[in-house]
Design a protein around this nucleic acid. Structure first.
Length: 555
RNA sequence: GGGCGACUAGCUCAGUGGAUAGAGCAUUGGUCUCCGGAACCAAAGGUCGUGGGUUCGAUUCCCACGUCGCCCUCCA
């Protein structure tokens, strides 16, 4: 709000100077306004004079003086401007401008922080997309939290978002699933089986086998193996997918679309995609296989799409899938992948480009591994042996809110240590409670006010100029930043900015609340502080809402 | 061997082409007559991996090196 106003003022000054000197103006100006770390450097500062010094042929400080001299503060928000150091322009904002922020927040309420930056652009976010061959584990949980919050942040900034789960219900993994279930089934009938090490070892396979035995009896003993595998694979895949859907639901995620990989084969999208590439002369034969010339589009080497045994590769269906995504009219397609797939980025971007779409419209977010700890000790996990901690177990142990929040407190592309004991702790060790507690405290404050029959009427204006403590001003400044934090979080697709922001806001609040009484006999001051508290409550709630974390009134 | 990424306080991590590099945990010592102690205050802790380069200015950008991780299948 205030920062964008300042940018406008500076732009006007620059244009004026440019026309005076007869210099051609190159727009956009890309003016950066920042909040200085040190208070003496003002509420906002800019380095334009240093950056533009060369363009204007003036020493930085001289240019700064010219900019300041021509600056028109139409809304009368600036109390002082000075030029410092090598040419920084420091702006001091009137207290009345900060206080206005509180009025805006209370008026906008749940809409404060939202914007129409996206102008309704259709965006797809595809995430988790784990094979339906086993339950979701913690790593998937992180991808789920990141993907969902990217979607939420885009929704908050005016995009029309569609969440999608790509179901790998075709291919060899599903066959192995079916075969794994069959082998366990046979065991239940006392047959000696040789269970391969790379098959699914998990306990859930036994459960599925038992389930089938109960339902179908010895039916599969008399069925041809390939048919049994096909049927069991379909049955098992469906059951596991139901569990996955249920887990994600409990985690607070609703998908608009569950996209079946198999459907791409059934309607021959995959073969048609290959035909299309062939028509463009981008497919060739080598060693009996068919290769896509991805190296012509920035990939390090060409890739096989049809193997020499005639089978289509996973990459082939992925090409068809991405073609399908863009044909559905999304302006932006975001894929959230595990970081171990990073080597795959160039090849899929090459495919998208080769199929005639902009690879810049495809954004790939990598999510790093999660190290699960308990009291600092690593929790042993082995997918191969089927020993892993599931997302459901984590949710049951620490709760949805703590799990989501912890997943989001790091950049998604950096490793994350997730300590189960810490996540359960109800203290400042645990960042979720710290934030939620602030919200609950404010709710409690208003409950007490009500008990004491203090009436607060949000429609009647109060004298906010009474909020003149340094911490009060600091909180107002932080509150004013919220819309740009949300915006930046959307621009850079970085959800972790929100937890960091919340922590900043809430720590000042806790400190302030510890020191200062809000309910008092000084009615005008009490009212002003109620308004401040109310706006903090709103911002915490709005931010937590974007994170998909609840804002409890009592804890 | 090649590619990608990371390297910031004891630990886990934020951050930025700018003016004195931050947070949480851990450590040490404090705060409660009172709106929720799931809180607060203070101390201490750093050559931003190493060496070059680019510039008015580099922890941030570029190059080399070191260490670690991931990927290098006609697997998905």
């Amino acid at each position: 709000m205030i920062d964008s106003y300042l940018v406008e003022c500076i732009e006007n000054s620059l244009e004026q100077i440019a026309s005076e000197k007869g210099i051609e103006v190159k727009t956009p100006w890309d003016i950066t306004i920042e909040v200085p770390k040190i208070e003496e450097h003002g509420d906002y500062a800019t380095n334009v004079a240093m950056v533009k010094a060369r363009v204007f042929g003036e020493p930085p400080r001289k240019l700064a003086e010219k900019i300041v001299g021509r600056l028109q503060d139409r809304e009368n928000l600036i109390s002082d401007i000075n030029i410092a150091g090598p040419g920084f322009i420091n702006f001091f904002i009137k207290n009345s401008a900060w206080q206005e922020v509180i009025r805006v927040i209370i008026k906008k309420a749940e809409n404060y922080g939202k914007s129409n930056w996206g102008r309704g652009a259709r965006v797809q976010v595809e995430f988790v997309s784990a094979n339906p061959t086993g339950p979701l584990h913690v790593g998937h949980g992180r991808g789920a939290a990141v993907g969902d919050v990217i979607a939420r942040v885009l929704e908050a900034t005016g995009h029309k978002v569609s969440r999608e789960y790509y179901v790998n219900d075709a291919g060899r993994q599903m066959e192995i699933l079916g075969h794994s279930i069959l082998l366990r089934y046979l065991e239940l009938f006392g047959r000696e089986v040789d269970f391969p090490e790379d098959y699914y070892q998990g306990e859930y396979i036994f459960d599925l086998a038992r389930e089938i035995k109960e339902e179908k009896g010895d039916y599969y003993l008399g069925v041809e193996e390939s048919r049994a595998i096909a049927e069991l694979s379909e049955y098992g895949g469906k059951r596991i997918l139901d569990e996955i859907k249920d887990d994600l639901n409990r985690f607070g995620i609703e998908y608009e679309c569950w996209f079946s990989e198999k459907s791409l084969f059934e309607n021959s999208s995959v073969s048609r995609t290959i035909e299309e590439l062939k028509g463009r002369g981008l497919i060739y034969d080598k060693d009996g296989a068919q290769w896509f010339k991805s190296s012509e589009f920035g990939d390090e080497k060409d890739r096989v799409v049809v193997r020499s045994n005639g089978a289509l590769t996973y990459f082939a269906s992925d090409l068809a899938y991405h073609k399908n995504k863009f044909e559905r009219g999304f302006e932006k397609v975001i894929d959230v992948w595990g970081a171990d797939h990073h080597g795959y980025i160039d090849r899929i971007k090459a495919g998208v480009k080769a199929l005639g779409f902009s690879d810049e419209a495809l954004e790939i977010i990598l999510v790093q591994l999660v190290n699960l700890l308990r009291k600092g000790e690593p929790v042993a996990m082995s997918t191969r042996k089927g020993e892993f901690v599931t997302l459901r177990e984590v949710m049951e142990e620490v709760g949805k809110d703590a799990a989501r929040y912890i997943f989001l407190t790091r950049r998604s592309d950096s490793h994350l240590d997730f300590d189960l004991e810490l996540a359960k702790e109800k203290s400042s060790d645990n960042p979720v409670y710290y934030v939620q507690y602030a919200h609950a405290r404010i709710c409690s404050l208003f409950r007490v006010a009500k008990e004491e029959n203090i009436e607060v009427d949000w429609s009647r204006d109060v004298d906010l100029s009474l909020l003149n403590l340094p911490q009060e001003k600091r909180m107002m400044k932080i509150l004013a930043q919220f819309p740009s934090v949300v915006n930046n979080s959307a621009i850079f697709l970085e959800p972790h900015r929100l937890p960091y922001y919340l922590n900043d806001l809430v720590s000042v609040f806790h400190s302030y609340y510890n020191k200062n009484r809000i309910i008092s006999d000084n009615r005008p001051l009490m009212m002003a502080r109620f308004w401040l508290a109310r706006s903090i409550q709103i911002v915490i709630k709005n931010a937590l809402n974007i994170l998909g974390v609840s804002a409890p009134e009592k804890m």
